[in-house]
Design a protein around this nucleic acid. Structure first.
Length: 108
DNA sequence: TACATGACTATCC
DNA sequence: GGGATAGCCATGT
């Protein structure tokens, strides 16, 4: 069963462009809440796995975080790498450079 | 209804 | 700078 909160999280992830990443905190802020833990739970329960770019959601400190698909975190790293995102170990290389915030798309 | 858990974040040592 | 602890909201049992 999907709650309104989860739907909001999944819809927010669809806004993330390819080659960019965002954090759980950014999504929470976009939704107007501080429930970053709840956001993480919602993303993990995302039924639209490949349809929604849930792999573009990482932790706020630049680390990959976790993943519930394929091989888990390694698969998440692979997907991000294929989109041109540099990853070193379990962290984003140019984190600030590939970081994307909601609303930045209209900033041109 | 109440308790425990989680794809996190911030603070303290 | 790195590791450990507490706080946080929503969900599931």
């Amino acid at each position: 069963m999907a709650t309104a909160f989860q739907i909001s999280v999944w819809r927010a992830m669809e806004l993330i462009p390819r080659g960019k990443v965002t954090s759980y905190g950014a999504i929470a802020h976009y939704l107007g809440t501080k429930a970053v833990r709840a956001v993480g739970s919602a993303v993990g329960k995302n039924p639209y796995a490949p349809e929604v770019p849930c792999h573009r959601v990482i932790r706020g400190d630049g680390k990959i975080g976790n993943y519930s698909g394929g091989e888990g975190t390694p698969t998440k790293i692979k997907l991000l790498t294929q989109e041109g995102i540099g990853i070193e170990g379990d962290k984003i290389v140019d984190f600030q450079k590939v970081f994307w915030q909601f609303g930045s798309e209209i900033k041109l």
